[in-house]
Design a binder for these strands. Structure first.
Length: 205
DNA sequence: CACGGGATCGTCT
DNA sequence: GACGATCCCGTGT
C-alpha cells in the first residue's frame, strides 16, 4: 500500500459548506472492496444537495422520511437510493448530524481493476460510458442500495475515499446547473454541479 | 449524432 | 397511483 494513499480524514466530511466540499472531492479517489475485489476510480464530477433549502434535494425543508433519514446522520455516511427502479445512485452524506447535506457522485475515471468494472457493466471495450454517469459508476464499482447507510469512515468499510495528493486547479473546475432536476424551479438553475474541465469521464457536456 | 420511448420499483401522496 | 438526482437501444439522418 502506497503511503501517499490516505483515507480522507473524518473531519473532511464535517464541513457545513456542501458546495465548497463537493468541489474538494474532485480529484479524490473512490474505492470499493466488494466480494474481495477492489476497484478504484478518480472523482471527476459531483453535485451538491442541501436539504435545508434546496428543492432538488429529497430532504428539502429538512423533510424526514424513512428514505431521507440517513441524510441527517453525521457526515461520512453513504446515501444510496434506487432511481427509476433501476439505478443505484451513490451520495456522500456531509456536515454534522442534523444537517441534511449530500454530494452525488456523477463521474469517475477508472483507475484500478478496470477489467472487473467492465465485467460488472457487461462491456468488452473501455469507453467513457463505463463510469460517466451516476447510475453506471455505481454499477461499475459494485455499489448497490444494499450498502445504504454504511459509514464510509469506519475501518474495513467496503466503500471509502482516498486522498492521493492530487490537486485540481480552480481554473480546471467547471460549475454548471445540476442534471435532471428541472422540477426544482429556481433551484434547478443553481450551479451546484462541478466537474473537471475537458475530462473524458464526465457524464455530459 | 439526435431523438424518442421503454425499463422497472421504492417512495410518498 | 404517479413519478423519479437514469440509461440503453432502435430508428432516422
Amino acid at each position: 500500500m502506497n503511503l501517499s494513499h490516505r483515507m480522507l480524514d473524518p473531519v473532511f466530511f464535517q464541513s457545513e459548506d456542501v458546495v465548497q466540499l463537493s468541489k474538494s472531492l474532485l480529484g479524490k479517489f473512490l474505492a470499493t472492496e466488494i466480494e474481495g475485489i477492489r476497484t478504484i476510480g478518480k472523482i471527476v464530477e459531483v453535485e451538491a444537495y442541501d436539504g435545508t433549502m434546496d428543492k432538488a434535494c429529497h430532504a428539502y425543508l429538512n423533510k424526514r422520511t424513512k428514505r431521507t433519514e440517513i441524510m441527517f446522520a453525521q457526515g461520512g455516511h453513504a446515501y444510496i437510493y434506487l432511481c427509476y427502479g433501476i439505478h443505484h445512485l451513490f451520495n456522500i452524506v456531509t456536515a454534522p448530524a442534523g444537517i441534511p447535506h449530500v454530494i452525488l457522485l456523477r463521474g469517475l475515471e477508472p483507475i484500478e481493476n478496470i477489467d472487473t468494472m467492465l465485467s460488472r457493466r457487461n462491456m468488452q471495450k473501455l469507453q467513457s460510458r463505463l463510469t460517466a454517469g451516476p447510475g453506471v459508476l455505481s454499477k461499475a464499482m459494485g455499489i448497490s442500495t444494499a450498502l445504504n447507510g454504511i459509514n464510509l469512515i469506519a475501518p474495513n468499510s467496503p466503500i471509502w475515499l482516498e486522498d492521493r495528493g492530487l490537486i485540481i486547479a480552480n481554473e480546471d473546475i467547471i460549475a454548471a446547473p445540476r442534471i435532471g432536476v428541472d422540477y426544482a424551479e429556481e433551484c434547478a438553475l443553481w450551479p451546484w454541479r462541478f466537474y473537471i474541465k475537458d475530462n473524458k469521464w464526465v457524464s455530459k457536456k
